[in-house]
Design a protein around this nucleic acid. Structure first.
Lengths: 361, 361
DNA sequence: CGACTAGTGTGCAACGATGTAAAGCCGTCG
DNA sequence: CGACGGCTTTACATCGTTGCACACTAGTCG
């Protein structure tokens, strides 16, 4: 049925191997021969059979991106960036959704689908430092996020503590004294929630503000709905606030909704800042201030590190941790700009590259 | 390096083929043999080599989903649904982003990546009826959307005209007389814009309202930014309006932003309804009324039709067109519910299944 | 003039799995 | 008792490519 190299070879009057050579850009081929093969390919509509090539070369040209859910804008935009970056390098991305469940995240590392691709960019949300063992794998991997540190893999993360501290200080610099936090994970030691909460506390301390537990709102999943709920609870409790730092933009947008429902003016009565700087932030009412963690740079870096490792032949290079620069973007919800204006850059937290030696398993 | 069936066979003391049979669930195997093989598999950590299997079976277990951009919430949520539906059936999804460019959409149909997967779910945005020829392909395909009709492929679409008409009539039923449209594509004959505009005009006619061209706002790309711009232009022109029908939710959220920036109360002065019912709609301020086109059903149906066709052996079944039911969900932006309430179902447009005979190429 | 190099092209043996067909080993039926 | 059919296992060829080694031609160098 399908056209194979054999058919092309026959038509062009050359050997199969020569067709292969032409297809793969082998240099030592007479122009005339190459031309004849190419014509035969076009005439017959030949396409190389990837399965056969992959079997032979032990490469698939695919990489996996594993994220919790595409319907979360942050991950959708991350996926967009990763796909574009991979595409530019001639690679194809396969997306797995884990729903942030332990089972599915474990499966990503070892499941049936694992060997479909040459490498993995993994943003875990359920697995944590106790599962470090699971991360000792024998394929190229780049880890995103702050759930797991010290795994034998490259790691692209963000400057969570510093950025959260900067966000908190930004609210304080506007004269706000009762700064609430939305999205905490009580008792959690690792992960974005813990790190950003740490930054929040550091920010309060530096601004000379007391820490009031009533100002900390829990939200397990960082969705709009949970943000709205957490905000609603705090307002119903009658807690006095004049600012909110939401640990991501979805929470912030949910909180904004709840604030509005309570007839509270933003930023007049309450200033609000989120985290992630997703596209929505620009278009909410009022436009949402946020922390831009350098998502595009994260995606590009992750792809770059992964492809480097996939292509590596000799001794394994030491594992690296890369932290792109994050920035605070002030918009209407903190009163940084007037309605209809663009957000403005309020501060930059510089990251960097760190090289970590980890004994290979 | 990697463990192969050969290694497993040796360890279990059986033939390679028996290992293969165990792995593939062939029934006629003694329990004791199966057990021994399974132990060997576990001991050695064997995983089947997909490339080899694919080469042999001529199946990859992958399907492609081609959409314009994942960062558009509608497509992100669609992708989420498609991946979940495929996953439930044991299939894996590979996503291609076309940026809605002709070149990339053409490439999806014929490019290097095409043969990586067993089938294609394609949501074209640049290619149109003039390109019908390109859609005559020799692999299973399901087309989404309303750019191309009559292609030799299954088609899952939505009830655009009827749903848009219902949305318009809904605004009219609230007593609105100056109903603006945001997102028109002037001169376009096909596609969502044209169909929804038709529905809008039908709705106006049925409500006995005149059609005023000043009320029609263009927006090429359906992003928040273009929706905001179109709305801004109309307001700056001093056009009098008391309602807006935006052709999708991104446009609507952008328009909402512009309305707010002009100090216009929604829904007090202007009622607003969108299209797509993305997750954001629930959490905007005010919550956005919208048309739910049955996205989840679209995704499930598309996967179902595609897998059916991939699995088909005998005569090709006639091509089908499936139209899921769409619904109008009333929220705050049309004053259908009070603040903080859930959206409520305002009307349902019933779709259906249609079977179309198309001569196979 | 022989040895070498660069340029072209080819044959063969894999890569790791599965489809086909067929070989044993029973028990049972006529 | 021989044929038959159900169960269990196996041998072998094969899917479509590419890596390796090598053959052959010319031109060049010492």
């Amino acid at each position: 049925m399908a056209v194979t190299m054999h058919d092309v070879a026959q038509r062009a009057g050359v050997s199969i191997k020569t067709v292969s050579n032409v297809v793969n850009g082998y240099p030592y081929i007479r122009a005339e021969t190459r031309q004849r093969v190419q014509s035969a390919i076009e005439d017959l509509g030949y396409r190389v059979n990837m399965s056969a090539r992959n079997l032979r070369t032990r490469r698939t040209g695919l990489i996996t991106l594993a994220v919790p859910e595409l319907s979360l804008p942050y991950f959708a935009e991350l996926a967009d960036s990763v796909i574009s970056a991979a595409d530019a390098a001639g690679w194809t991305v396969l997306i797995e959704q884990t729903s942030a469940s332990r089972e599915r995240e474990t499966e990503v590392l070892s499941g049936r689908r694992r060997h479909l691709t040459d490498g993995l960019i993994f943003s875990p949300l359920a697995l944590g430092p106790d599962d470090l063992g699971l991360f000792t794998v024998d394929f190229p991997m780049v880890i995103l996020g702050e759930r797991v540190f010290g795994a034998p893999a490259d790691h692209v993360t963000m400057n969570n503590v510093a950025a959260a501290k900067a966000a908190t200080l930004h609210l304080a610099s506007l004269g706000r004294r009762r700064i609430a936090l939305i999205g905490a994970h009580e008792g959690e030691q690792v992960g974005s929630a813990a790190l950003r909460t740490t930054g929040y506390l550091e920010g309060l301390a530096e601004a000379g503000l007391p820490h009031d537990p009533a100002l900390v709102g829990e939200a397990g999943l960082w969705h709009r709905s949970t943000g709205a709920e957490a905000m609603r609870r705090m307002l119903d409790d009658g807690t006095e606030i004049d600012a909110v730092f939401a640990l991501n933009d979805a929470l912030a947008l949910g909180a904004l909704h709840a604030l509005h429902a309570h007839g509270i003016d933003v930023p007049g009565q309450v200033a609000l800042i989120g985290f992630d700087d997703v596209d929505d932030a620009k278009y909410s009412v009022p436009a949402l201030s946020s922390v831009d963690p350098g998502r595009d740079q994260i995606a590009r870096t992750a792809v770059e590190l992964l492809l480097e490792r996939i292509g590596a032949t000799g001794d394994p290079a030491p594992f690296r941790r890369v932290v792109p620069d994050s920035r605070i973007v002030g918009r209407e919800s903190t009163g940084d700009v007037a309605q209809g204006q663009e957000g403005r850059l309020v501060s930059v937290q510089e990251g960097g590259i760190e090289t970590v030696e980890v004994a290979s398993g």
